[in-house]
C-alpha cells in the first residue's frame, strides 16, 4: 500500500468512527436534545412539578381566554391527539394566535401548566397575505394555521 492509500484509508476510517460515535452519543442524549415535549409525551412520563419543562404544540382554536384583570391568559396547547391547559401571566409574543405553534416554558402542576415564558413558533411557509387568502379560499391550504 502506498503512503497515500494508507492516509486515505486512515482518514476514511477515522471519519467513520467519529460518525458512529456521534450517532451513538446523540441517540443516548435524545431526551435532553429535545427542546420541548408534546402534550402526548407528558401523559405517560412522570414530571416533577418543581422542575421547569417546555411544552410545545398548537394553540387550540377558541381556547384563548383573558382574565378579568387583563393580566393573565389561559389557553390550551394541543398536538391534535392530546391537549394541555396552560395559564400564563405576561406579554405574549406578536406571532401568538390561535392555531399557531407555541412553546411554553414553566411547571406542570396537577394537569395544569403554569407557564413562565411563552415563545411563538412559526412554520416554514412564507407567502404574501393575498396568496394565503386565495389558497384558503380555494381549499388548497396546507399550513397548520387555519384562521
Amino acid at each position: 500500500m502506498t503512503p497515500k492509500r494508507r492516509r486515505l484509508t486512515m482518514v476514511g476510517l477515522g471519519l467513520l468512527m467519529i460518525a458512529a460515535a456521534t450517532a451513538l452519543a446523540l441517540n443516548a442524549f435524545e431526551d435532553t436534545l429535545v427542546f420541548f415535549y408534546s402534550p402526548t409525551d407528558l401523559i405517560d412520563t412522570k414530571t416533577n412539578p418543581k422542575k421547569q419543562i417546555r411544552v410545545g404544540g398548537l394553540v387550540e382554536e377558541k381556547s384563548l381566554l383573558k382574565s378579568n384583570d387583563g393580566l393573565s391568559v389561559s389557553f390550551t396547547i394541543t398536538d391534535l391527539d392530546n391537549s394541555l391547559p396552560v395559564i400564563f401571566k405576561g406579554a405574549l409574543p406578536d406571532l401568538f394566535r390561535e392555531g399557531q405553534g407555541v412553546v411554553a416554558e414553566g411547571y406542570l402542576v396537577g394537569g395544569l401548566f403554569q407557564a413562565k415564558h411563552v415563545l411563538a413558533k412559526h412554520d416554514e411557509n412564507y407567502m404574501p397575505k393575498e396568496v394565503a387568502d386565495s389558497l384558503k379560499k380555494s381549499g388548497k391550504w396546507k399550513g397548520g394555521n387555519k384562521q
Binding site: F35, F36, Y37, K121, D123, E124, N125, Y126, M127
Partner: peptide, 24 residues
C-alpha cells in the same frame, strides 16, 4: 427534522415545492 426545535424546518430543500412564494 430529528428533534423538536423552536427553529422551523427547511423551506427550500423540501421534496415537494418550496414553501416560499416566488416573489420572496
Amino acid at each position: 427534522d430529528w428533534w423538536n426545535t423552536l427553529h422551523q424546518p427547511a423551506s427550500i430543500s423540501r421534496l415537494d415545492a418550496p414553501a416560499i412564494d416566488t416573489s420572496m
